[in-house]
Amino acid sequence: MRLLQSVLVRLATTAVTLFGLAVIVFVVIRVVPGNPVAMMLPPGATEADVARLSALYGLDKSIFQQFLIWAGGVLQGDFGTSITARQPVLELVLGRLPATLELSIMALIIAIVIGGLAALTGTRLRGTRVEGGIDVANGVALSVPDFLWGLVLILLFGVLMPVFHISGRVTPSLELPFVTEFYLFESVVRLRFDLWSDIVAHMFMPALALAIPLSAIIGQLLKQSLKETMHLDYVTLSRTKGYGETHVILREALPNAALPTLTLVGVQFTFLIGGTVIIERLFSYEGLGNMAIDAVINRDLPLIQGIVILFAVIFTGVNLFVDMMYAALNPRLRHA
């Protein structure tokens, strides 16, 4: 019962957040001087042409009226029509979402693998030079944001040692038999490992750039948490049973140390998703973020609104998911 109540409260505050965000974005992008419609028409267009097209997109009404119309549409699943692409916003946005989701999740996995290995190695070899080296690397990785890591990776593995692709999502000349936009996932399902390796070679650099700062956060937090756990009595007791250091870390300390790290990874993962906007631009990756920047530059108001709301839904959804995971993984909460 308490669980249901807390979920309801969460959903209510989420709704308030989304509504507030929608209002702010709606107002902010309509303060833009200059009519976006004017940019779409050829130079010789008359005032009447502009007015007609404005009426078509509802831009001649007051901001308040426009908001009501837009919000009414959203509640029925209609996010309006993109001004530049002249297609439904929902269709456009959902078409790009898989690319961004695949990139973010791949980045998350890379971050967990690198961060986890760094933390475990640092704990196993604590007090040695290796641990010191890991700490320094973590510090640097943490201080420099994904945008710069992306540029560094472009230089290192795109130019100096060109082993990965630094532009696009897939080699354009390849024939894609896919029915969904989840290329990475579908290539595995269809056992097309030739396509899969091409997609991974394109995704790896942007995913790694996104992953580096998060891996440092995971590495630092998990290592700290592990170090505290290693002093606890049940870890000592496990040693007396005849287990070696590695086993003790993995089975006794890690499950308990991972839990506090998990809650923080949730918030950090939303930051990572936010980072896809510029990273996709940097690597010309055809995802939601790249589309968002184009939408802003083209002043495609309905599209901007749609993308912003979608990002907000993803962010709040991730946070909700992490909280549920935490409850599910923590035996104390599970049986309470």
Binding site: D233, Y234, T240
Partner: peptide, 17 residues
């Protein structure tokens, strides 16, 4: 591990939660 064992002091912290 095979021939000795420990009965620890604090039962609240000696079992993995």
């Amino acid at each position: 591990g095979a021939s000795c064992a420990l009965i620890p002091q604090d039962p609240l912290t000696a079992l993995n939660p």
